Simulated assay, not measured.
Amino acid sequence: MGIMCSLNQISLIKYMLKTLERPIIKRFNETDWEFINPESYDNEIVADEFWKAVEILDYDDKRAEDVFKKLIEKYPFYIDAYVHLSIAFRNQKKTFESLLTAEKAYNISRECLPKEFNSKKHKIIWSWLENRPFLRAYLNYALESIEHKNYEIAISVLKDILNFNENDNQGIRYTLLETYLKLKNFDKAKKIIKKYKDDFSIEFKFGEVALAVLDGNTKKADILLKEAIQTNNFFIDEIKKEKHIKPAPYRIPGEPFFDAGIPIGSVQQAYEYWSRNKDLYKNKKIIEYFKYK
């Protein structure tokens, strides 16, 4: 009996110690709040292990998965480890595990917010490095929710991020706009375009053209199109294609094996944007409009 009590006490102590390893968020000034991670994993040794695993994502996702799992086993409230474990799962098509892990990271992050935190006036800004895991956790959960067609959850989370970080360093407005377009909630889509009226991107400029076409306002669409083409002059051809084939990765001259991402204004960007919004751009009314441009 005495041994059992001792074992229970030890388990309780271990649990309490783990609970103390939760990150906390504190007010930095009148409006800004900052995350503070526990010393147990806020150090160079753990950070080096974590970032080495991040570097092999997309190349050796199973090995990255194993590293993130070990980190989480040691540090159960390590938000960024959960976020990147979710990505490792997603890359391996483990969709159920990816969603659950993303939700876990989101819940840990959300539970860090104290009662006195007022989302209408308090901010968690991206420029504070310690806040980035929190903001990444929210975005990753929103992306997973979209992947699983839980659009209302995604919209709610995306709006929260914009409230936390108005500068929108993560490009939340683009994901939010595309989500409204998926839902055919064109009024909300117009409102977000109006809110970011100075945004000069393929998403906003061609999105505004498409909405004008759907409204039957071709004169407005023609005016908007002149500016939209400046963001990407390959996109009109992409819309008109009967068969859409993903282009080869963009390569830097002299670096034939280095994937240089998706440059703005490139054929790769035109395809990726079409692919994310193909339900919208398969609309016959929109296709017919662009066929004559």
Rank of each mutant, 00 (worst) to 15 (best):
M4P: 00
L7H: 04
L7D: 10
Q9M: 11
L20H: 09
E21Q: 13
E21M: 13
I25D: 05
R27K: 15
E34K: 12
F35I: 06
D42L: 09
E49P: 03
W51F: 15
A53E: 03
A53C: 09
D61I: 04
D66A: 15
K69H: 10
Y75I: 05
P76A: 08
Y78F: 15
S86R: 02
A88N: 02
N91K: 08
N118L: 08
K120Y: 07
I125K: 13
I125T: 11
S127K: 10
R136M: 15
A137G: 12
L139H: 11
E144I: 01
S145P: 01
E147I: 01
I155H: 00
N169V: 11
Q170T: 04
R173C: 15
K195S: 08
Y196T: 07
D198P: 05
D199W: 04
F200L: 11
S201P: 09
F204E: 11
K205P: 02
G207H: 03
L214H: 04
L214N: 01
D215I: 01
T218F: 13
K219I: 10
K220Q: 10
D222N: 12
A228I: 01
A228E: 03
I236C: 11
K241G: 12
K243M: 12
I245D: 04
P247W: 06
P249I: 10
Y250H: 13
I252G: 12
E255C: 13
P256A: 06
D259Q: 05
I264D: 10
Q268V: 06
K282V: 00
K285V: 10
I286E: 02
I287P: 04
Y289A: 02
